[in-house]
Design a protein around this nucleic acid. Structure first.
Lengths: 337, 337
DNA sequence: GTGAAAGCGCTAACAC
DNA sequence: GTGTTAGCGCTTTCAC
């Protein structure tokens, strides 16, 4: 019927107050050159009308929106969800709002830099700064501050990572200490720094212990249960199969357990299984599994803190922040001494 | 040095192509009145430059953004997180992107309709439609489609709810069947439809069984562990304490267990405890607890599906969608027959 | 202290 | 088919 949009605009407020839009804008942004009287009147009318400025319009015109963006491939992915907890905590009580941006069309964008697409949609307009979760591209240029969580291998951006290498070494020292000599490894998703650091730790620990690095024992993974399953089947089918398998994350570890149980093996009696874990105690209901707790929510917390610092013009004393991991042993792995 | 913002705009693309901005805009929006030749050239340049239109600008000018908004009080809240799983699944493979909007300043906004503020920031500009999670205000007017998840009591909007009443009745029938006559109840957060429906089920089941409804047995809760703890202490300190406590959600149930263990009671031997649960199996590691699984992620899935229908102009056959719940008994509650 | 006017990046008439 | 032009709602000079 009417072509009028029933959204309240700054004009509506201005007219209701009998002042100009610029005055209302000044009030909105708490500029100090507004008469107290005018200021209060405008504030009152704003409250009465329930007006809120449109994010889109504000974004276009001003540099500052007080909104932090979080870019994730897939809302609902356990890693992201755990991260949100820490991010939520970090944001609570600050003046920032939060926007999590995630795309449908995963298939279409998965390979071709979703983060770049998403970034350019938000950066420089809607958000004051951006947190990118597990980006797969190495070159991400933003005009506003950016912090990466578990970034690409060749990352040069401010970032937060887990102590992946150290965690992997702890796992290996534990297994080697129990007498294991042939330890299988299932890698993470290619391109991520977490993946290469974990593998590095695996190899370093072997070398440190004077054990051979057998390429056949290193199978590719991508942080999914299915791939973990197939890689584990591969490992278990070897002529000289490993006595322990170290999976780069919780999902792959579950895949390993699937494969083991299909092969009639019991955990941890017949096969020792260790996996990195995104969520504290998420894997505690899986009997026999040993895990490395990554404190993912802390990564989220720290990353957000870093980003806020950057947005506020401060410099980071340490652009690459490493969050400690912790080996969690519930049922001890098999000793084969 | 330069005052130029290094963001790529539609103008840059237009100049690089030697066409006007409107032509580029037409290509971007796949209008059919562009010469194939021009179309392809522009597409190629766009791909080469890695241009993506700014969400803010697009939002301001056009009705359609292909973005769905999700409004939550607090990112990181377990209910929201579980919801995200379903939403993520629903969105996957569609043409829609997702924006989750959440505010810092919770304290400031908690009482005074955060959802209205957030809504007006996004609605009518950035998003094509919005999902509001547990709104506390009854009147939410949006110019674009809106679906509420676990809405306010006096809700008239399209919404998704759990079968709260039925779930509560199932709990009560189970407990009454075991011989319980005095069953405590800890309510949910006031104002939500889930809260009143659960309480309704509690009362109905008592009446159905011909048992008295003792107001002293109904204690207020707000879905937090702390309040659950205090309310449970209250119940346990009664002259004639309940033999079973039914808590309106998982957190309150944990509070009940805290109170019970502080009172030296064992679950379920000394006290039967049942709680609604947001996350499948989240409470499975809590021994003795019986839960009602709410299928929260399914709520997210269904709500998203409904919203997409609305955005696409379809009408819903059922504006209020009720998701079944399921009583999950691990350790049987105490029988006091 | 306040208003008028320009313009952010984009889309949608309307010309040609 | 394509360019020109007028805004969307807001912030920000620059006058007064």
């Amino acid at each position: 019927m009417s072509r009028k949009k029933n959204t309240l605009t700054i004009r509506d407020v201005a007219e209701a107050c009998g002042v100009s839009v610029s005055t209302v804008s000044r009030v909105l942004n708490d500029k100090d050159d507004v008469a107290t009287e005018t200021y209060e009147k405008v504030r009152r009318v704003i409250a009465e009308m329930g007006y809120t400025s449109s994010l889109a319009a504000t974004s276009m015109r001003s540099r500052r929106t007080n909104v932090i963006g979080i870019l994730v491939v897939d809302l609902g992915d356990p890693f992201s969800l755990e991260l949100f907890k820490g991010i939520g905590t970090a944001i609570r009580g600050t003046e920032y709002d939060l926007i999590v941006y995630s795309g449908g069309r995963v298939a279409a964008t998965a390979e071709s830099g979703w983060e770049r697409r998403h970034l350019s949609r938000l950066d420089g307009s809607i958000t004051d700064g951006v947190l990118v979760v597990t980006p797969t591209t190495e070159d991400l240029t933003a005009i506003s501050p950016l912090v990466a969580v578990d970034p690409h291998e060749h990352n040069t951006l401010p970032a937060v990572i887990s102590a992946n290498r150290e965690g992997a070494i702890a796992v290996m020292e534990y297994l080697i200490g129990l007498g294991h000599r042939r330890i299988g490894f299932i890698t993470g998703r290619q391109g991520l720094v977490s993946t290469s650091h974990r593998q590095q730790g695996y190899i370093e620990a072997l070398e440190q212990a004077g054990l051979p690095v057998d390429p056949a024992l290193i199978q590719p993974g991508d942080y999914t249960r299915e791939t973990g399953f197939h890689s584990a089947q591969h490992l278990l089918a070897l002529a000289d199969p490993p006595t322990a398998i170290f999976a780069a994350n919780d999902q792959s570890a579950l895949g390993v357990i699937d494969a083991a149980s299909e092969a009639g093996l019991h955990i941890p009696e017949d096969l020792s299984v260790v996996g990195f874990d995104n969520i504290p105690q998420a894997m505690c209901s899986v009997p026999g599994l040993t895990t490395v707790d990554q404190s993912v929510s802390e990564m989220g917390y720290v990353a957000t803190t870093m980003l806020i610092k950057l947005i506020q013009g401060e410099t980071l004393d340490e652009p690459l922040c490493k969050i400690p991991t912790r080996l969690v042993i519930r049922d001890s792995c098999r000793s084969i001494k």
